[in-house]
Design a protein around this nucleic acid. Sequence first.
DNA 1: CAGTGGTCTAGACCACTGA
DNA 2: CAGTGGTCTAGACCACTGA
Lengths: 239, 239
Amino acid sequence: MNLPLHERIRTDIEGRILSGALVPGDKLPTEHEFMAEYGCARMTVNKALSALATAGLVDRRKKAGSFVARPRLHSMVLDIPDLMQQVLSRGQTYRFTLLERGIGRSAASKIDGGFDLGAGKAVTLHGLHYADDHPLALEHRQISLDSVPGAEHALFDSEPPGTWLLQHIPWTEAETRIAACAADTRTASLLQLEAGAPLLRIERQTWRGADRITVVRQLFGADAYDLSARFKAQETAGR
Amino acid sequence: MNLPLHERIRTDIEGRILSGALVPGDKLPTEHEFMAEYGCARMTVNKALSALATAGLVDRRKKAGSFVARPRLHSMVLDIPDLMQQVLSRGQTYRFTLLERGIGRSAASKIDGGFDLGAGKAVTLHGLHYADDHPLALEHRQISLDSVPGAEHALFDSEPPGTWLLQHIPWTEAETRIAACAADTRTASLLQLEAGAPLLRIERQTWRGADRITVVRQLFGADAYDLSARFKAQETAGR
DNA sequence: CAGTGGTCTAGACCACTGA
DNA sequence: CAGTGGTCTAGACCACTGA
């Protein structure tokens, strides 16, 4: 427990805020006052306060000073591990089966839900994820061949398309939508459920810079999956 | 567009990584080499590289140097706006109706799903969120009276419990689970759906430090709600 | 105008860890 | 052992913005 000084200053101030000794809106001492309090250079105080500002715990305004920020509660970190990894880490066997595969204009077999690969050519894939030989999720995916030419001849037999993509094309941005829906008869039979059974639907589009990489929709049986997210309040409130 | 120097160095290096000019595993120049390249002090280079390390784009190892990090893809930022705010921002009217309210040991009417307020006393609330007088979500919530004594006499008529809590007890940590389920007959009738209709189920527990604040389960009709998350790849990969 | 934070410098000492 | 990043100092100049 021999933290650097700027970390100790940071956690010290953080403690005053989280304990409620300082409440949102309260003014913090100035950097010069902290310098005197901790007997250190201003850069060291600045590093601690800047980190707290980046973390969203503190608002800093020139001339006015630094203030305890009002909590922002509009985002949380959602853990979405790779499906194959997650199944394996539970000690189950994992398998992916490709049901269907086609190549064409991406608009032709568009995945509904508002996501869109644009006008170029794309590979369209339908497949099933299995955990311990029980169907876990039905996947419908398009991969842009403009952005990922290598997808044209990839087999997707040993690893599922999502895992393959991660290793070939790191993405820089993704958008995810999560909803519930009822299974149609075809989906129900593939997932070994009854028609109308509730499904968790996850749709995601990913980009690399301005290039659209892939659009995917995954359907999970209600008992098969849940998402879990753990969030420490201000750590991602930076923007 | 007159960024400070450390920001320009940062975005410059970031550009080399995102464009693919530098790939994961590549060694970056040392701080001294960057000093020469940009003609600045080492602290300025250090600030840029430290920010990239915090963002997860770069791994830094003493003696060895700085390297382009392998992408980590296991978390994304999920926007979960306040329900009342979201309804109002769509231009709809919002209303919350309390159906039931009780006080007792929190264990007695525990919300299933693994979340738990512990042994203390708690207020239990059942209520309905309405958008434009149409039921949007059924909420079942417990609030710890040890952590939030003021909840005992709060009315929850003008604002829903979640909004009330945000303004009284800022939380520091939350865990969320998301799943699909089928509506039982009582839930279906309250949400004006048919029994067995698919629902999106969101369960959340929040803490303030070590204190458990609240456990909530919200059930949304499949058409009524979806979650959306947008994620820029490495920005939250800090941990 | 004057106080505040934002940035930058040119050094310094050190811990760590790979060669 | 030697190179690297981690930290810290004691200054400096400046832009911003509230009084």
